[in-house]
């Protein structure tokens, strides 16, 4: 039996499990979105609770449907292309978050970005990520 491989310095010092990161995202992001509803501002200028409830319901429903659909994709599409798509999706999400931050820093008005702009950035980032890994390899 082989001796256990020594853990890399990164793995040794980075104790944050992805479960904690994604668990925090699952709890904190909806709380931030719903803050106006949970803690109404004194001027009453907050998001409509019904709109927030609808947003949560659609997100929950679409998330579950997308998870089931991805399982179908994984079975139907060959592994290489599925992994290209998955890696590309990670690039798209990170690119989208980065673009929003950079846009906010440069322009100072993140509210100027519309939902369509966000989808455009996400889709373009996904395609860039797909072709980057397609050309450079999945380990690149």
């Amino acid at each position: 039996m082989n001796a256990p491989r020594p853990r890399s310095a990164w793995k040794r010092f980075c104790r944050i499990s992805p479960d904690w990161v994604f668990g925090a995202m699952l709890v904190l992001v909806p709380l931030v979105i719903a803050r106006d509803w949970l803690w109404p501002a004194s001027d009453g200028d907050g998001s409509d609770p019904r709109t927030l409830a609808l947003l949560f319901a659609i997100t929950l429903g679409c998330g579950i449907v997308a998870a089931i659909a991805s399982r179908f994709d994984r079975r139907m599409i060959e592994d290489f292309h599925y992994r290209l798509m998955a890696n590309g999706a990670i690039v798209g999400i990170v690119a989208m978050m980065t673009v929003v931050i950079v846009f906010d820093v440069l322009v100072g008005d993140v509210d100027a970005l519309t939902g369509k702009d966000i989808i455009l950035v996400l889709t373009t980032g996904w395609a860039i990520g797909y072709f980057y890994h397609r050309l450079r390899g999945l380990d690149a």
Binding site: E78, D79, F80, H81, R83, R136, G137, L138, D139, A140
Partner: peptide
């Protein structure tokens, strides 16, 4: 699988799944 998958494995751009 597709020819692209075979080419990606041969060129080291993709380590195939266990199956």
């Amino acid at each position: 699988v597709s020819r692209q998958s075979v080419n990606a494995i041969e060129t080291g751009k993709y380590d195939p799944s266990l199956p």
